[in-house]
Design a protein around this nucleic acid. Sequence first.
DNA 1: GAGCACTGC
Length: 753
Amino acid sequence: MAQQQGFLKPGERSKKAFGVAFEGNNDPYVHNKKQRTQPPTSHQRRPRDADRLPVAKYRRQLLYLVETHATVVVLGETGSGKTTQIPQFLDEAGWTEGGRMVACTQPRRAAAVTVASRVAEEAGCELGEAVGYAVRFESVMQQGMTRIKFLTDGVLLREMMEDPLLARYSVVMVDEAHERSLATDMLLGLLKKVQRRRPDLRLIVASATLQAEELRAFFDPGRDSSVVKTVQPGPGAPVQRTPAIISIEGRTHPVEVHFLQQPCSNYVVASVETAVDIHKADLPGDILVFLTGQQEVEDAVRMLDREAERLSASSGYGSKLLPLPLYAGLTGTAQAVAFSPAPRGYRKCVVATNIAETSLTLEGVVYVVDSCFVKQRAYNPLLGLEALCVAPVSKASATQRAGRAGRVRPGKAFRLCTAQDFAKLPDTTVPEMQRAELQGMVLQLKALGIDNIMRFEWLAPPPAEAMVRALEALAALGVLDQDARLTQDVGLPLASLSLDPSLGKALLTAFRQSVPCSQEMLTIVAMLTAAPHGPWVAPPGVRKALDEAKSRFAVVEGDLVSLLNVWRAWQEHGCSAQWCAKQLLNQHSLRKAEEVRKQLARACARLGLPEPESCDGDMDHLRKGIVAGLFMNAAVFESTDHNPLAPESDPGTHVYRLIRPVGGADATGVRARSGGRDGMGRAAPGATTGALDAGRLRLRIHSGSVLARCRPEWVVFQTVQQSDSGWYEMQGVTAVQPDMLLEVAPHFFQKSR
DNA sequence: GAGCACTGC
């Protein structure tokens, strides 16, 4: 205990060295105040243990509430068993009689698949019989036989296009609603609508955090007199439209949370020191450190490696520290290392990005070190550009991270901020709906028959500017007409392709233009969809080799056309794994691209598009197809900035300027028309002019682009991200001719003068 | 001169 005390209050010892000191926590935040002694998690999966899950006690109450309420909000902590048990309760209680199914949605594919197989095992059936799942590319179920179906929320949205009232389901359980993904929020809004037309449908919204009241209020028809408050579901009690809330405790262990006594100036250094302190205290259990990005993770691992070496040299400690990185850019095998148990005599210290907060679970973690920062996407609807920003986490997010310490036994979490600063953090993360680009979402809602998107009932309404921006962009693409309805020629076909609208437009155009290049565009679009940041692996220390590998496939037309070479070379080498490794290509990305490509080709055939054709090296027509989708992201070279302090050999920074509707003449020869217009030359709904001076925005080509060292006069790009240095950097760049812009998007551009 | 995390019949 003395040792522990010393560890909890290391201030005297480590304050000087690292400026990191923690407050002992007199009133520790405990995740589950009811401490439980239960068998380890691996036993939970065994069928007979299901009865011992916390949710088992609530079975009768839960079934009663589902019977009598249209919507039940289930507040359930990690380990409560809600995901695996509730669908089985419903099945046993007769909710799957008459051929109807119970659906349980998950935000992630992996979760849908693994939960389904666990439930199938518990139910004693083969996966795909009574219990099945559906995720993109993979549906393991049998019509008429499967009663419980786990699916991603994205798949359920797709299903609604064929079956808007979800007639095949008696109950829909939306799990992990607290994550507030774009698809989850869309689904909740749509389900509320469906409920009005299907009073017999039951909704269960499962959430891990304190948003129960918000959810109840959302699904409560309240005083709305147009809604029938009760209906008879056959025999039994009348159905309450006002949602019920039920709370189920979890089966995790308490986690003591500690804060810094003083703010730290460098959380990477502080996290390393904290991990080392934990290790020195020599209590058993793995350490999990949360940082924001790949670079930070690699820096921390390097520092920890040095510390580990020093410590093992000075000896005296029972085990050696084994620092391991974990982030999405690692190859599968490198990720697997972080998951495998530490060898005898070692203690793992996994340094991870946000990937470990929700997506992946590490066994054996007892200590969590939380930088309390996260890197997240932020969208600026006024400029139509996004940035990756390092931002403080929300309290809910920090709670989730801390909870990772309590899965095997009581744990500790060390937050690298003071308790005072922590109190100032937002309670919950801003829903994706309010910080994302919305074109795809709007297209999908339109396809589901939601005409008045502005009046749609949202759990969290998207910013009006983002909505207007999305409507304008869809109008410019020809997806929406002047009444903001889906167009026959573009909108309807695009809605059935699971693609970003701009990529979908490029693909449609590739099929339809005078010299088709649909084979090539299928490949490019599939590659971009499967691996938005490129098919390359990104472990550290291979930067130079990676540049060389990229340049082997690079062409002057730019990044998108270069992807074509990667694909062709991969095919020519028999899709070999060794070849991928040698070229620093991520095999997984290429295989996924292959699946996307097949699926897209099938979808195009269903739409009645012609057989895919190749343009046989006609790069101009290929680029025209690309421009048809990306013309709104056009930029022109302006000037080269020279840093007066840089050596004379320094090429300087090539600065580009966006060509967007801003009005005014332009010396470059082409300018955007003021006011977006639809494909028929009519003013697009909500088109704005001059309000934002995107034309003044200074862009440069991202250094990872194959065109980074070239200086093409005109380009279109796929995305822009703001760098740490404040530059807006274009990614997925294609060099174009100004004539192409005028020819492909005459409604958007005009010759100046 | 450089990559948070997901998803799509």
